[in-house]
């Protein structure tokens, strides 16, 4: 029962992007298309789950003073695994996510969960927590990616939606559009959270 709670809290109540305001850089940078959002989401979820598990396994073997460098080393290792695997098996996605794959290392969601959750809880709980947070993050990426792709390029998953003469609102895929859409999304979620209470 409590495991289900651990899982769902990452999606709604403690959504890493909307509520905790973590991991904003990749959220805005890669959410120009749905495919990029999904790719980034899966990559980050993989790193989150693996690093959470490893860190909760080794939590008693880590001296307190140097725990942050050790956590970062663990995270960087999994990020490199993702980076190499993506370059080998999904070269097109790896090309379009570019620099933001290595930057998963400094995605505050991952270090935040390592420090705030995995270093205090057991393996199973940490696994569920990582999965929930990852799904919550991916969800936001997909929502933003869908809005920005439809409005900004007039396509969905690369397929034209409105025919030849549609002039898309380019602004949405440019950097300002990223800022506007995340601002509006957070405001909407604030409104919703208040209603639910």
């Amino acid at each position: 029962m409590s495991l289900i709670k651990e899982f769902t809290k990452g999606i709604i109540k403690e959504n890493p992007v909307l509520v905790l305001a973590l991991g904003l850089c990749p959220t805005l940078a890669v959410s120009t298309t749905i495919v990029n959002g999904i790719g980034m989401g899966i990559a980050a979820t993989f790193v989150l789950v693996c690093s959470n598990m490893v860190i909760s396994l080794i939590k008693n073997l880590v001296p307190n003073r140097i725990r942050i460098p050790i956590f970062i080393t663990v995270i960087a290792t999994f990020v490199t695994i993702v980076k190499l695997a993506m370059a080998a098996y999904f070269p097109a996605l790896s090309k379009s996510l570019g620099i933001f794959i290595p930057l998963i290392v400094v995605n505050c969601i991952i270090l935040g969960r390592a420090e705030g959750f995995a270093s205090k809880h057991g393996v199973l709980k940490s696994f569920i927590d990582g999965l929930g947070m990852g799904v919550g993050f991916t969800m936001i990426l997909v929502i933003l990616g869908t809005c920005r792709e439809i409005l900004g390029s007039g396509t969905i998953l690369g397929h034209p939606l409105f025919g030849e003469h549609f002039k898309p609102a380019l602004l949405m895929i440019l950097p300002p559009g990223g800022f506007f859409s995340i601002g509006i999304l957070i405001a909407l979620s604030n409104l919703l959270q208040k209603r639910l209470e």
Partner: peptide
């Protein structure tokens, strides 16, 4: 500021306007 936009959301809108200017 409208209550739902207080804090982070309005900061993002401001950042968006700045980004527009920098464009």
């Amino acid at each position: 500021v409208p209550p739902a936009f207080k804090g982070l959301p309005i900061a993002f809108i401001v950042a968006g306007l700045m980004s527009l200017a920098f464009l």
